[in-house]
Design a protein around this nucleic acid. Structure first.
Lengths: 339, 339
DNA sequence: ATGAAAGCGCTAACAG
DNA sequence: CTGTTAGCGCTTTCAT
């Protein structure tokens, strides 16, 4: 079964490439090609398992029916799940997805954006690293279709699908307050990322609205690449005599996992001595000892909306309109904050 | 900053496209193009941010410097991690990766293989669904470069990178035996997949070698798409009076998670009443109550080797040789089998 | 209702 | 050392 090309079909059927191409692209009727001819072409193509060369097609059309996905790290379950939904939705629209991880590196992200554009992706879904304003801005200026997910730049007017980070963490903190916690700490990632700033703000807002002063000693920012080590120090400080926290809010799942690991190794009882709560989930937070109360992000909505917005923009169904979605999170109450 | 093409460079510099193309592909020296000309071209290209259209390049070259990755499900942490390593390694070799999930559906997998080939990927890494011998065989016949990971077809001579499933589960079962367990059950996925058969065999081999008869009542096969419900029944049966198992081997992580969930809801103490052990890990198995003893797969090796083998084949450094790798797993002993 | 021919942007014989 | 030319496989304008 050797490869067969458009030209081959035309020759065998004694037709022109034009006719064959038209029919194969479902434009036979609109070009008044006889039903009989259409059937001959379609049958022959099917029988010989004809598949167009997408590279040639893309080159000719100026588009590739591919969308690029750039995430910080595809092996982070959160992004893997988003990728999954993006892929499903993209397939519905007839697009394939190409992906790459930036590994939280702005330089890598820049290269990826270029590389993907060179590969003629029709649009981009980006969960951007912290500080890549420049390239995002350039992308916007060039009117290249793209949509930001999970992370956005408040200063740039772009399409995005994000989550209400402030509201989510505010909820979490209030949940702790409601459970009688008095001295609540925050462990977060040191980052310019708006998402992280918003999460911190959520924590602060909840406290402030309850008339509690912010104690900056209780806010620990750890380095994203060195969090395992730094979190140990953070936990030790938070649990020493001068601080005596009774609850910790973690702004992301792997911080919570690390934190809990450390609390356990210190022999501290969760939730009796210290309650914990996590933004975002790991696979088995319900099985963990204790089951961790956490905030669930609407991953499928994020993926679906991102693709819908992007495809809309690519196909310019709506011209020039900017689409910004801020989705709500959901608090899953388990045992780690007391009953 | 508008787009610039090869032709533009040639015109501005009053050179031919050939010269420019040669230089840009680092073949200036071998074609004896003067250093001066080379420098002019390189500088101009850099200053004007020239990036070749990869579609055109691919069409002309007959290759795209892209490799396709097909997995059952990218949101399964195991495949997400493999994808991560594949991507890293591919980048080292100058390849981009395109991915898709087959959702365990052979028909989808077939389409994906074709679709990727149409998109002119240079090679494929496939974690195949259970029963797609036909397409894999066709792929082999057509001499298209590909390598199977995680799952393979024993009847087909292909490149693959898999794990010693039999040995892994045999180890797990022996670990249970060593800990004094007498009545060990197996919960696995109902599947023709060789990997799953091997895991079952590992369990049976361990028992047999210890002189224990296989009791088929203690082997439960659940449907991959309906495992949550079926596992409940399985657990109930295994824990009823006639069976009285004291340990359960789970052949994959999500089965273990579901199983543990059910055991807990039944108020059964793990590991005192029933020990459990899992092939493969979820994110936080060390934090689970109790920490789950499990078998860790060498994910990074799988990804790295797969890409190395594939790129070798694509670039035909070694002609016609078949490369089959069976990697060893590692048992992480925690608390779920007793101390 | 169908065909001829040009063109998408790049590479590569071959010529000089 | 550099240019001419054809061609990768497909789409599309313009004829007929």
């Amino acid at each position: 079964m050797k490869e067969i090309f458009l030209k081959d079909i035309a020759e065998k059927l004694k037709l022109s490439k034009t006719t064959v191409s038209l029919v194969l692209n479902n434009r036979g009727d609109e070009n008044k090609i006889s039903k009989a001819t259409q059937k001959r072409i379609l049958d022959f193509a099917r029988d010989n398992n004809y598949k167009p060369n997408q590279l040639a097609r893309g080159l000719s059309l100026g588009k590739s029916e591919t969308i690029g996905l750039i995430v910080p790290n595809i092996s982070d379950i959160f992004y893997a799940r988003i990728a999954h939904y993006i892929e499903l939705k993209a397939k519905e629209f007839g697009y394939t997805v190409v992906f790459s991880s930036s590994n939280e590196n702005a330089e890598t992200e820049k290269e990826l954006i270029h590389s993907m554009i060179n590969r003629q992706v029709d649009g981009l879904v980006i969960a951007s690293t912290q500080c890549n304003q420049a390239d995002i801005l350039r992308l916007k200026k060039s009117k290249f279709p793209f949509v930001l997910v999970d992370r956005h730049y408040p200063e740039i007017m772009t399409n995005y699908v994000i989550v209400d980070n402030l509201g989510g963490v505010k909820n979490m903190t209030e949940h702790l307050l409601k459970n009688g916690k008095k001295n609540i700490a925050l462990i977060t990632i040191k980052s310019e990322l708006d998402a992280m700033q918003q999460r911190r703000l959520g924590y602060e807002t909840a406290l402030r609205e309850s008339g509690i002063d912010i104690n900056t000693n209780l806010i620990k920012e750890v380095d994203r690449f060195n969090f395992e080590a730094e979190i140990k120090d953070a936990i030790r400080e938070l649990t020493n005599d001068s601080n005596r926290v009774d609850a910790i809010v973690f702004t992301t799942h792997y911080l919570a996992a690390s934190g809990l690991r450390e609390l356990k190794s210190l022999g501290i009882n969760v939730p009796n001595e210290i309650a914990i709560i996590s933004f975002d989930e790991l696979g088995a937070f319900d099985l963990v000892d204790p089951p961790i109360t956490s905030t669930k992000q609407p991953v499928s909505d994020i993926g679906n909306l991102a693709v819908e917005i992007l495809v809309n923009e690519i196909e310019k169904k709506n011209k020039e309109s900017i689409n910004q979605q801020i989705l709500q999170t959901q608090l899953l109450v388990r045992k780690s904050c007391g009953v």
